[in-house]
Design a protein around this nucleic acid. Structure first.
Lengths: 194, 194
DNA sequence: ACCACAACTTGACACTGACAAGATTGCCTC
DNA sequence: GAGGCAATCTTGTCAGTGTCAAGTTGTGGT
């Protein structure tokens, strides 16, 4: 039994699972203050360990963020697989961004990541495949001009909506409406021929 | 004549226009390494002034970024006004993002900005008005269900496309195609009834 | 029982943002 | 045109951060 449930009062051997603790704390901080508000020493303090402890699990600040991005791509891939149609894929994309805002932000901040990290690149390939598959299975009736264009379109729309939403740029426009409902109505707004 | 042309060889009085010099250097750095790569001391070094000089013009690191965001909203407003139709507004939006990547990134990174800054809020209102106007004048024939929805849709699509483009997430999908041309084709891809 | 290795600590160094206090320079007024 | 004023910039300093190196402690494997 390598990882026992930690009875919350007594500190386990070295800490138990520092990696998870630091990841969780990092996600909290990032969701609240963005990646810029993140400090390894602060995370160490929250976990009750010494200031250099995080480095052993993540090497760098960059390493920590890269791990988060990789985890995010895994979560996104899982969320996307099995989407019945195009629109639902977009909805799931935005839902992922709202449920995992820290992951989402970090995933799309290239300068903060180690681009050649293996874990990251494979996870990214996984989520990309999931999106491609969703577009392929959910292609509209006429089988539009190009699956590639369709993929870019749905990705751009969903990504833009999610980004603006998380940045509170749509608050005034949405009022108290349900963002998901609005999102579903967007595509036909761009081409109101139906 | 408060600001004389600076003959490039002799250093003017205190520096000439440090504010501009620092802004320019900051835009370079941000475009290359993102806002995280920005250091006030480094900017001071590039401008050949002491480490605390930037603070006098921008108060904070936050102040500098806020000034950049405000300038960006002004530029965006100028770029958007007079767009003949919806699609062209989107194209101009993306063109702005590509021509001013540093401004664009900073404008949509709320945790880095002083939200209540007057210059910023007025500039933001300006760009928002420009977008609204573009959507209103360029409304499609049928005058769709809701101008508000249309605005969210075109904004989301353009913003998502621009963001993914700047993050190099579309490189593989676009190949050597012209991004603007692809963008123009996107809306009909989402609803291929024409 | 022992030992190699993983997990963590301690200490140090360079760098950064921010603040306070002083120096310099151009401008404005009389 | 001389003196004072205010903006601009400098110097010095402090706490905080990331990263590296070296040491310490506990664990699991054999």
């Amino acid at each position: 039994m390598p990882r026992t449930l930690l009875s919350m009062n007594d500190r386990p051997y070295h800490h138990g699972d520092l990696r998870r603790a630091i990841l969780a704390a990092a996600l909290d901080v990032i969701a609240a203050d963005g990646p810029a508000g993140l400090s390894l020493r602060d995370l160490a303090r929250r976990a009750g360990v010494s200031h250099a402890a995080p480095a052993h699990h993540f090497r760098d600040r960059t390493g920590l963020l890269t791990a988060i991005a990789a985890e995010g791509h895994g979560l996104l891939a899982a969320a996307l697989t099995g989407a019945p149609d195009l629109r639902e894929a977009g909805v799931r994309y935005v839902r992922f961004a709202r449920e995992h805002p820290a992951h989402f932000q970090v995933m799309f901040s290239p300068p903060l990541l180690r681009a050649d990290d293996l874990e990251l690149t494979t996870a990214r390939a996984l989520s990309a495949a999931a999106l491609t598959e969703a577009v392929a299975t959910g292609a509209p009736a006429g089988d539009g001009p190009d699956a590639r264009l369709t993929r870019i379109a749905v990705w751009s729309l969903a990504h833009g909506f999610a980004t603006l939403l998380l940045g509170h740029n749509l608050d005034a426009l949405l009022g108290d409406e349900d963002p998901e409902a609005v999102l579903r109505a967007l595509p036909m707004t761009l081409f109101p021929s139906t």
